[in-house]
Simulated assay, not measured.
Amino acid sequence: MTDTPLSAPGAGIGRSGRVGRVVRALPHRFGPVLVVIAALIGLWYLACIPMNAQNSLMLAEREGIAVSPATAQERRDMSGLALTLATPEEAIARAFAQDRPRLPSPHQVIAELWDSTVGKKITSKQSLVRHAGITLAPTLLGFVIGSLAGIALAVGIVHSRLMDLSVMPWAIASQTIPILAIAPMIIVVLNSIGIQGVLPKAIISAYLSFFPVTVGMVKGLRAPSSSDLDLMRTWNASAMRTLFTLRLPTSLPYLFASLKIAVAAALVGAIVGEFPTGAVSGLGARLLAGSYYGQTVQIWSALFGAAIVAAGLVALIALAERLTLKRMGLS
């Protein structure tokens, strides 16, 4: 009986070599992204100085710091850049430490995000996690409704020339109506028949999310080549059989790309749907409350919270895409 080695010679070296290649590739993969982010943050900090210069001078006057007549005249002229150049020490020192700045600095937004997520219990009315969860319910419901409606419309458009000529132009025209104009109409009409709560906001989300799914699926269902379609005809395959065995598998990459756009649009629809209802909970309500009371830091933290939620939803769809296409042997 011979001894069997626990691992093949060079296996550890191979694994360490792969790890080394991954580590060496990190700067090339993430370096440009980090440089762009750093540049944006730097420009953001620079923009805070002229944007907050007006408030900086007002705070200086309240604290009894002498302000020259020329500076006072510039303040009346509302020239933020001139104010910064006229009093650089006061402007720079006070631009990043205001309770209600015109433009919050990045560290203020990050501090507010941390305090409203980690620093608050989820059950607290100040918790951004709680508000995000409330907005997430109509977002997901509207996303499902809009996606199913978009897929059904796409199947009808591909198989019916009458629907292609009649429904597709109306679907395109529907997206020219501003959502801020149609959202109150949807809320009022549904409230008049007793429908309240999550469903009206979900319908607004579905209104925004169905169009990208429709367009993407139409493109995907028409992706099979004419030779593939002729082959299905020679096999005497029905339209339904062709749909499930050829058109739908071919359309999956287009579908997932459309779903990523649709889920972000659904989140926007849910936030906009909270505006006309006077909601006290949700990301839209958080934005409204910050606007009413001049809490710009709260507004920006809610915006970044919405962006984080949207990025998480898109990442989940990307993961589902990777797993599905890999299982089907398409990637």
Rank of each mutant, 00 (worst) to 15 (best):
L246G: 08
A171M: 10
G282K: 14
S127H: 06
S205H: 00
V213E: 13
D115A: 09
G284H: 15
L316R: 00
I41A: 12
W235D: 15
S7T: 11
E274F: 09
A266R: 00
S174N: 10
E274L: 13
L6P: 05
V22T: 11
R130N: 10
R327C: 01
A86K: 09
G20W: 05
P212A: 05
Q298C: 00
A95I: 02
T176P: 05
G216I: 01
G14M: 07
A264F: 06
M58K: 00
R21T: 06
G290C: 05
Q108K: 02
M51N: 11
L255M: 14
I204T: 06
I134W: 01
V23M: 14
L85K: 03
G269N: 09
N55W: 01
A239G: 05
I177V: 15
I182C: 08
K120H: 12
P224K: 02
A39S: 13
G156A: 14
A72I: 12
V309S: 03
T296A: 09
Q295I: 00
I41M: 13
R15T: 06
Y292C: 00
E63M: 09
I134C: 00
I172D: 10
G10R: 11
S7N: 12
R76S: 14
D230K: 12
A91S: 13
Q108E: 13
I186G: 03
S301R: 06
I172M: 12
L255Q: 06
I92T: 11
G17Q: 08
I299P: 06
L243E: 04
N236Q: 13
K120A: 10
S227V: 15
I179C: 10
M78C: 13
V215L: 15
L40Q: 05
P101Q: 07
K120I: 00
G150I: 01
K120V: 04
L259T: 04
M163S: 12
S16N: 08
L26P: 12
K125I: 06
V213M: 15
I271K: 11
A97H: 08
I271L: 11
S331H: 04
S205R: 01
A181F: 14
L128G: 06
S147G: 07
Q73S: 08
P9S: 11
D77E: 13
D3I: 10
M78K: 15
I122W: 07
A25D: 07
F30I: 03
H159Y: 11
L199N: 01
L283A: 03
A25G: 07
L140P: 03
L136V: 09
L180V: 07
K326Q: 15
L283S: 03
A93L: 09
L229D: 12
R29K: 07
K121P: 08
F96W: 12
D3N: 11
D3M: 11
F30V: 00
S16T: 09
D3G: 03
P138F: 01
A279D: 03
A262E: 08
K121D: 07
S209Y: 02
A265M: 12
L113E: 15
A262F: 04
I179P: 02
T324R: 04
L59G: 05
R24A: 13
A152I: 09
S281G: 07
V118Y: 07
